[in-house]
Simulated assay, not measured.
Amino acid sequence: MSVALFKREVWAANILAGLDETLVYAQPQIVNRDYEGEITSQGQSVRIVTVGDPSIFPYKSGDTINYEDIDTAGTDLLIDQGDAFAFKLDDVDKAQVAVNPMMKTTQRAALKLAAQADRFVANLYTGVAPSNVVGTTGAPVSILATPTDAWDKVLIPLRTKLNRANVPATGRYVVVSPEFTGALLRDSRFDRVDASGSSEGLRNGIVGRAAGFDVLESNVTPVPTGSVQVIQAGYPGAITYADQILETEALRLESTIADAVRGLHVYGAKLLRPEGIAVAYVNPAA
């Protein structure tokens, strides 16, 4: 690829597509994108509008019905996060590579951008409602004593927490670490995707179904201390997320005989419904 062939819109779309294919915590099935406005710069805000619940009242035939106004409220989602990449490739080195090196390197940059966005969204767990927590950092749940520990001591309590919080059952997920997946594989109740014979509705990182959850695996599950990991369950209405590739530029460098590419990914996320997620502190090493 030469700078002359660079098309900014195409590359921006390709980078976003690469992000969408690798995101776990920040993918659309885990977070919602219910915001208004176009993202044009880092540091701006987009508006999120929420609608209140209607009241339920007793009714008998012939009763007069009074219609209430539904409350709408708004909150701002700050696009305060930004990650960039910038690289160059000498013409001599580029000539020795059979594949398109600039595009391949940009695709790899998209993978790293996705990991950074995922880490940011994953750490929103700290805003969880206090009643929706299983275990503590000081007393995490052990998941290796018996083959059923991961299911019975973590997933079922998380399910109960969400049920008590009246969280919709449709679309529930749980994001786990590779170690937690390993513990689940010991339980015959775990419905593995690779053994189900179906790829319908697959999500990034999905490994199976358990206890009413889509189970997704991530390498960026939070580790607040030592070997303690945070397992997060919830539904897509709890967290909102917005992102944009603001800049993708190709440059012909003046100081050397090389092409360069740089890009900027900006994003923001907010836990709107602290009761819409539940977390468990687990120790997969104990």
Rank of each mutant, 00 (worst) to 15 (best):
P168N: 02
Y267G: 00
Y267K: 01
E68K: 10
E217T: 02
I65K: 03
Y235N: 02
V282A: 05
R164V: 12
P168W: 14
D34K: 12
V46K: 02
P28R: 15
A195K: 11
L202D: 10
I156Y: 14
G205N: 09
Y241E: 02
G138D: 06
T248S: 07
V279S: 04
V10Y: 15
N219Q: 10
D191A: 15
S199E: 13
D53T: 03
Y67C: 03
K270H: 10
Q42M: 12
R209A: 01
F6P: 04
T40G: 08
P284D: 02
V207S: 06
Q107E: 13
G234D: 08
V175F: 13
E21M: 04
Q107F: 11
G138E: 13
Y173R: 01
V176S: 05
P140T: 00
L216R: 01
T64G: 14
K270N: 07
A129F: 14
V3S: 05
T146K: 09
L216P: 10
D149R: 01
D118Q: 02
D243K: 15
V3H: 11
G197V: 06
D214H: 14
V3P: 08
A278V: 01
D91V: 04
S188F: 15
G74F: 11
V133R: 05
V167K: 06
D214S: 06
A286G: 10
T221F: 14
Y173C: 01
Y281P: 03
T106N: 04
S188H: 12
V141S: 03
F190Y: 08
T248P: 09
T64H: 14
T22E: 10
P28D: 06
V154M: 05
D191K: 09
L78T: 02
Q29H: 15
A110V: 01
V121P: 09
D243E: 14
E38L: 10
L271C: 07
T181H: 11
A12M: 12
A286T: 03
Y25K: 00
T22Q: 14
T146Q: 08
A117V: 05
I143A: 03
T136I: 09
Y125K: 01
R108T: 00
H265V: 00
I65H: 07
P222G: 05
Y35C: 03
L78N: 07
G18E: 06
L144G: 10
A150N: 07
L113T: 00
S198H: 12
I257P: 14
T105G: 05
D20M: 09
K88Y: 14
L253N: 11
A210R: 04
R164Q: 13
K270V: 04
R273T: 02
E200G: 07
A242F: 14
P157I: 01
G268E: 05
G212R: 00
T225R: 11
M102K: 06
V97G: 06
R33K: 08
G182E: 08
A238K: 01
N132M: 15
V134F: 10
T64P: 10
N163K: 12
P178T: 00
N123F: 12
L78K: 09
L77K: 00
P284F: 06
F120W: 13
A285C: 11
Y173T: 00
K112E: 15
L272Y: 09
R47T: 02
L184E: 00
A278D: 08
L78F: 11
G276M: 05
I277H: 05
A250R: 02
G205H: 08
F85Q: 03
K161Y: 12
D80N: 06
